[in-house]
Write a protein that binds this DNA or RNA. Structure first.
Lengths: 359, 359
DNA sequence: TGTTGGCAGTCCTGTGTGGCGAGTGCTAAC
DNA sequence: GTTAGCACTCGCCACACAGGACTGCCAACA
């Protein structure tokens, strides 16, 4: 994850200029081009032949490569890694951007469900990349426990079960009842069960359902149905399943120059990886454990379809209520800005959550 | 929507063969090819020169066209339309497929939320196309009315509001409370408000919130927050907004040969149209009003990005609980099979809903 | 020893050419 | 009205070729 050796100052200047230039233009960068820029910035000592010599050693180190022999150089994943860790100048969001984002969040200040959606939207817009955000959740305990649930009558024989876990997570499902029941009956049933089910686990619930099944007439079939559904909902949908992610910006990502001439299979792979969210479960545990903004560059990622994509991701939240937010873009991205935006959004959500849940 | 003139028998035979052959191969169909097939099927009278003469008139009628002068013919939208209305042999799902689908639905028979998801998945798989399904809803009344709502405590100052409309629709939102409240307090508040809010409309709720705001201390700020949120949820999210759609199969659609060499802009347009669901609101009213399976071919559709896509869509459901299901694929599709699958899924959902809600 | 100008060499890219094949439209014969 | 045959029109592809972008390396120089 860390580039081993430290380069000398001139090599670093060259690598920095190369990365910045390539990110700007998208083209391989020629020695002449670098020479001009560096000479202008730092004075003499950067003739193109000199730069070429240095480039050759940088290539030996695996930090850059040539797409073909008569082309300029392009950073490798390792080169970007070195850039991000040692050369990058950290940037900040402009005050205008900060104000705009603040305003958007102000408008939904009481609507917690909008926060996640808005965060993804802001990330996607600001970085023209795909964004992913998970809702804030309690650290998934070894054992999900029921806090409370309600039954709402939708139709004579159809009810909605909504349950709240002890960590505040919400799950729900519509079920078909065996018998027609009105809201009053359902409320009574819910109240009666709630009183017996404080801090119940899936095991408890299943055991209860079992015993009421065998004990026969005393418990109704619908009571058993409710217990079984609660148990299933309790075990299902952990924080890293696709359902609990919100994503945005696939279209923004596809609009980028990198995909203008991409073959359809590459595009399909990216869309599939984002839609099915096949890659985040793999990196989520590591991100949740770490502090600060994580940068995963290209092949450092295990997910094959995203080999040439980078992920900038961070944990946000307060004690007991945290989630994950990040962006996915081509390895050729403005890392400095991406990190700044991700960090700023982390801070924004942290502030909101601290207000809401205490610190 | 309907091809005006009726073609003579031989022209029809040629058009039918041409459409079937082109759907099978994806290539423009040559006169020689048609001649061979037709002669084999119907005997003499179909020499390639004869077929060429007929093709020239079909082209004048706008039913087919040549991609370039030395290529075979391809059906136009109008040609497909004629095929679908007069030439197509309606097909049925094989018993095996029917059984497979039945089995999948049997496994989620009590879980109503899974029906919509499963329907989209089955459609996408069976037809290798994108699928869209809306959940069953009551015919959107002029005036949404509240049936019942519940408050669930997620955290000291965070509550979940879940409301049920009279037609059985469910809406919900997390809100930030002004003061910390436990489940018992929230339940009491919900019970008290529910008793006063039977069949309330958004207007009623807003009026109540207003009056409690002016009357000052009697009503708490949180009571007002609940009333305002209920009012907003009541007006929001009509049946044709993107949120209420479930889609699947973008990846299946992109896997089709039509997209193998498509430029990235075309792909992006299709992904965007499906993700943002920009086209269905336009056709939904017409589909909801009509009976049976609707076929919208290519440019008959107003949505520009889907000019070369066809939509096969139908209304499903019983009185007071109906929705919309369909597939989106390239105009070059197996219309007969697509219509059969859509019709079968309509029937499947109808049966399930009839069991659930009565007929 | 490090730096630099210059030059030969490599390889990508774009363009133009010609042959091939597929399929048509048209004509003339049946 | 139907059919065989033929000239014609492209699209497609392979190939060659010129131009250009950069590099690597060498020799000279500080």
């Amino acid at each position: 994850m860390t580039a081993e050796r430290r380069l000398n100052q001139r090599k670093e200047a060259i690598l920095r200029a190369l990365v910045e230039e390539h990110v700007r233009t998208g083209e391989p960068v020629a020695s002449k081009q670098l020479s001009d820029q560096l000479a202008r910035a730092y004075g003499p000592g950067y003739a193109s032949a000199t730069v070429r010599n240095e480039l050759a050693t940088l290539e030996e180190d695996g930090l850059i490569y040539q797409p073909h022999i008569s082309a300029g150089r392009v950073p490798t994943d390792l080169g970007y890694r070195y850039f991000v860790e040692r050369l990058m100048v950290e940037s900040q969001l402009s005050l205008d951007e900060q104000r705009l984002i603040g305003h958007q969040f102000y408008q939904v200040q009481h609507r917690l469900d909008e926060w996640v959606r808005l965060t993804a939207s802001v990330l996607a817009q600001a970085l023209q990349s795909a964004a992913i955000v998970t809702p804030p959740r309690g650290a998934s305990a070894n054992q999900a426990r029921l806090k409370h649930f309600e039954l709402l009558s939708l139709y004579e024989t159809v009810a909605l079960i909504v349950l709240v876990l002890e960590d505040g997570a919400v799950r729900q499902e519509r079920v078909m009842l065996e018998e027609a029941r009105n809201q009053d009956e359902l409320s009574a049933l819910a109240q009666w069960l709630n009183s017996r089910l404080k801090r119940a686990t899936a095991q408890t619930l299943n055991a209860l359902a079992q015993s009421s099944a065998t004990s026969g007439a005393t418990a109704s079939a619908d009571e058993r149905l409710v217990l079984e559904t609660l148990a299933r909902l309790l075990t299902q949908a952990d924080i890293f399943t696709p359902e609990t992610f919100y994503h945005d910006g696939i279209v923004e990502l596809l609009r980028r120059a990198e995909f203008a001439h991409a073959d359809s299979e590459r595009i399909r792979n990216v869309v599939e990886a984002l839609e099915r969210n096949s890659f985040l479960p793999a990196i989520a545990p590591q991100v949740m454990a770490a502090e600060g903004v994580q940068v995963i560059i290209g092949g450092e990622n295990d997910a094959d379809p995203l080999k040439d994509m980078s992920v900038i991701v961070a944990r946000y939240g307060v004690e007991g209520q945290s989630g994950l937010l990040g962006v996915i873009g081509p390895t050729r991205m403005q890392y400095s800005r991406a990190i700044a935006v991700v960090r700023y959004m982390t801070q924004t959500l942290n502030d909101l959550l601290a207000d809401t849940y205490g610190s």
